[in-house]
Design a binder for these strands. Structure first.
Lengths: 139, 139
DNA sequence: TGCGTTTTTGACAATCATTGTCGTTGTCGC
DNA sequence: GCGACAACGACAATGATTGTCAAAAACGCA
């Protein structure tokens, strides 16, 4: 955690530092793995933090836009959010039990950069998700 | 959560050949680019084919499960479907104009196989989407 | 070829995550 | 301390996708 008050986007819109925003950030900082907006909302409630569901959605959106958290969109479900560890990485997700393994992929990064450069694309980002059956569930 | 995940590719399940299924397949075969289920439904109606929206959804799902079409899930929107060209490939999508470039990635395939094997995962599939700004829109 | 079984269809209702609304509340600059 | 204005949040609205189930169509078989 760093980035405190005074974060201001170029457009001149001030991002205010509120209890709710801090609560969401703090929760994400302490939590492992992916969780849906609704789950995070419930977790905040359990902690005694009173934060509206709408606010949770908006805060997560803002954090995702700022690149401070990961968003995963698994087939057939809600969006899942997770604090973003430093550096770029991807996820290997078990279809059956949902277990997630974090994998770094310098190979992929390099490849993606080369491909996009070839086509003249700029301001590039990419998402890569790998789904499979983990050894435990395979049995 | 259980999966009736279909490995029923053998002769057990008869996939019946209906007018509606043919219509959807034919439309996809003639159409370039990605389209939503609703768009495809409208296109069928314009052609004079009478196919229910529910059927379109189910047919697309079936085709996607069978690996005959691509599914893309862009942020903030509907699922987009497209006929799948032979071989595995990925997409480079322009954020501004939506233009799509198809790219093959043997490097990525190899990498993905290696990583999943390392973790013992089986029955693996992956999705990779690259978003950026194309040269035209960058200006 | 005709018949019965089984799948598929499709209009409509239901679901449910996400977004919009808008009066109220709290923050922050001054 | 004060006022402007962003953020909040309860609720309603949206809208894509899925479930339902009677009717229709396809296919296997005699």
């Amino acid at each position: 955690m760093n980035e405190r008050s005074g974060v201001m986007s170029d457009s001149g819109t001030a991002v205010r530092n509120t209890r709710q925003r801090s609560a969401v950030s703090a929760l994400l900082a302490e939590t492992e793995g992916f969780h849906s907006a609704q789950e995070l909302h419930a977790m905040l409630r359990d902690r005694g933090e009173r934060v509206g569901l709408t606010t949770v959605y908006r805060t997560l959106q803002g954090l995702a836009d700022a690149g401070e958290i990961d968003v995963m969109r698994p087939p057939g479900g809600e969006h899942l959010y997770r604090r973003c560890s430093e550096g770029h990485h991807h996820h290997l997700v078990c279809r059956a039990c949902g277990r997630t393994v974090e994998v770094a992929g310098p190979t992929v990064e390099t490849w993606a950069d080369r491909v996009t450069a070839q086509h003249g694309f700029t301001d590039v980002s990419h998402t890569l998700e790998i789904f499979g059956t983990c050894p435990t569930c395979a049995r």
